[in-house]
């Protein structure tokens, strides 16, 4: 494995008059927890949306494991190994928790309509494997007991966990989390932190957008700071914390 897992070069994105991203470059190393912080509207979510193929970019490129990554469609990005969660939770609300996770297995499985209609041996075996894996993942994120509840009936914290389980179901190499702790209480945040550390210990690389400065600084190996669509710092937490530009733009106002 190369020293760099994901490299973004000069990513640009404009919405009409708003330059949401301007020449953003960053490098994420394998098995690190990489934090992305910045004030509201800095372009963090937009960067996620570009990385995952949801928004077309205006310029720049992304390399995954040294190879150019096609950002044309989200499903090819998922197949390449980048999974994500959403800032404003996006679950399949009228599906059960386990079905939500099973959907995440779609990209790694292949049964088609004919397999389903004929209920072939291969299809049944694959279906059973999908279910088993989904059960494991629900257990992993700690909501196995809610497997058969509809997603919309889960508590807020459990919904965040379910979204992570669904993302993990795609067998990602890079997991991108958009403010996973938002709206969580202190206990839930502690549990979330343990979960993210566990993911890293299991070999995953995590890209984390988070406003909770304590969580970011305590958890991340390196942190990048965005302001008005531009990267103003990228380093280990101690250095970033001491950076005057960062203090002025972000920490000075939100970290007490």
């Amino acid at each position: 494995m190369s020293e760099v897992l994901l490299e973004a070069r000069n990513i640009g994105k404009r919405f009409g008059g708003v330059q949401a991203l301007k020449d953003v470059s960053l490098t994420i190393r394998p098995r690190e927890i990489y934090g992305l912080i910045g004030p509201n509207g800095a372009g963090k979510t937009t960067l996620f949306n570009v990385f995952t193929g949801l928004y077309p970019r205006d310029g720049g490129e992304v390399l995954l494991n040294g190879k150019p990554l096609s950002l044309e469609s989200p499903h090819t990005v998922a197949a390449a190994g980048i999974a994500r969660t959403f800032q404003n939770i996006r679950l399949f609300n009228n599906m059960t928790a386990i079905e939500n996770v099973m959907v995440g297995r779609h990209v790694r499985t292949k049964a088609g309509v004919f397999g389903a209609i004929l209920h072939t041996r291969a299809e049944r075996a694959e279906e059973a494997a999908i279910r088993r894996r989904a059960e494991e993942l629900l257990h992993y994120v700690g909501i196995a007991d809610r497997a058969h509840s509809l997603a919309r009936h889960l508590s807020y914290g459990d919904q965040r966990r379910l979204e992570i389980a669904r993302a993990l179901a795609t067998d990602p190499i890079l997991l991108a989390l958009d403010e996973p702790a938002a709206g969580m209480n202190a206990t839930e945040t502690v549990a979330l932190r343990a979960l993210i550390e566990g993911l890293r210990n299991d070999g995953l690389t995590v890209l984390l957008i988070e406003h909770d400065v304590k969580l970011v600084m305590g958890l991340c190996d390196r942190v990048a700071v965005l302001e008005y669509g531009q990267k103003i710092a990228e380093d280990v937490p101690e250095v970033v914390r001491a950076n005057p530009k960062v203090i002025e733009a972000y920490l000075g106002t939100s970290a007490h």
Binding site: T52, G53, L54, S73, P74, H75, A78, A79, A83, R84, F86, R90, L91, F92, N93, N94, M95, E99, M102, V103, G104, H106, V107, R108, R166, A167, A169, T170
Partner: peptide, 17 residues
């Protein structure tokens, strides 16, 4: 499941692969 996922949230379905 993929059909229902699209019905429920097309963006999330795309992102889920």
């Amino acid at each position: 499941r993929a059909w229902v996922a699209i019905r429920e949230d097309e963006v999330a379905a795309k992102a889920a692969g």
